[in-house]
């Protein structure tokens, strides 16, 4: 018995002596402007301007719960926002803090547009350039409940390539369920990860014309929804840069990358800023399941 005591002591000590983690101070990047844009048609444009924030400081943002309002100090208010093309400059009006819009954008497909923002509060300027892209038409789509499964739906959609050059597209989806999600949204929880892996939620589809057959793209998808009530789908013809921007987003937010922790620098076309300035017109449809 006496001979086992030192061994037992060693065992206990082995599993109990865990050193405390050390803090690490990481200098944070200076605050910069983030651009998001949405074109409803060739003349109606909205720009949302926000600010970057420190990764290590709280700004009242709970990333796990999107029901909270956007923190006001991250919105860029009182900025001078201009869009210029072919010598014509339009100033966007601030319709609420951080949101700037115009209804009279001279939208011409193929033209180059320059966005200029002068942030008077912080003394920062940003510039970005993009082209206005041809609108793609979502000519076919359907959605139906899968007969054998309770919460599974089948979606089909198809569209034609807009032209012979290289093209890229994004298809966004909107779903609203009658029933609430049974699991709380905790990104680190194992059950949440498993649920995300197994339940085929709609995200967005990124498509290049290399995936097309004879200039046409079609796909049938299944997805899970808790008593689907409202469904929306929008097809947008996008630039290569925006395609890369969305691809990087997807990779960063994937479950596999959350496990791996790989570095993914998100591309941007905003000089001295982040986000993406894009002039791309969606072809969008919404319906209720009764329809």
């Amino acid at each position: 018995m006496k001979n086992w005591i030192p061994l037992l002591y060693a065992v206990v000590a082995f599993v109990s002596c865990k050193p405390e983690p050390l803090d690490l101070s990481v200098p944070q990047a200076p605050q910069q402007i983030v651009v998001a844009s949405q074109l409803l048609d060739s003349s109606k444009l909205a720009i949302v301007l926000t600010r970057t924030f420190n990764a290590t400081e709280s700004k009242g943002i709970t990333l796990a719960d999107s029901s909270q309002p956007f923190p006001e100090e991250l919105l860029v208010g009182n900025a001078l926002v201009f869009v210029e093309s072919n010598g014509i400059q339009i100033q966007l009006e601030e319709i609420s803090k951080g949101v700037y819009a115009t209804l009279i954008l001279p939208g011409i497909i193929g033209n180059t547009y320059t966005l200029t923002v002068k942030d008077i509060e912080k003394g920062q300027d940003i510039v970005s350039q993009t082209q206005m892209f041809t609108k793609a038409i979502l000519d076919t789509f359907s959605i139906a409940k899968t007969p054998d499964a309770t919460n599974t739906y089948q979606l089909y959609y198809a569209f034609d390539d807009v032209g012979p050059e290289e093209n890229w597209y994004v298809v966004n989806f909107y779903t609203q369920d009658l029933a609430r999600d049974t699991l709380p949204k905790k990104p680190g929880d194992l059950d949440y990860i498993a649920k995300r892996l197994l339940e085929q939620r709609l995200d967005f589809d990124l498509i290049s014309d290399k995936q097309m057959v004879n200039g046409r793209y079609s796909i049938t998808k299944q997805f899970t929804s808790n008593q689907l009530d409202t469904f929306g789908i929008a097809l947008t013809h996008i630039s290569k840069g925006y395609y890369d921007f969305l691809t990087a987003q997807r990779k960063y937010n994937s479950v596999a990358n959350k496990l791996r922790g790989e570095i993914i620098n998100i591309p941007t076309n905003v000089q001295k800023g982040y986000g993406f300035f894009a002039l791309q017109i969606p072809d969008a449809y919404f319906m209720t399941m009764e329809q």
Partner: peptide, 26 residues
């Protein structure tokens, strides 16, 4: 390689905000 900042972008249907990282020098 640290994350030295973050920013939010709207998701595709403008129903949520997605956090994205700003990485420092590799």
């Amino acid at each position: 390689t640290p994350i030295i900042g973050q920013y939010l972008v709207p998701n595709g249907n403008y129903t949520d905000a997605i956090p994205l990282p700003i990485y420092g020098k590799r």
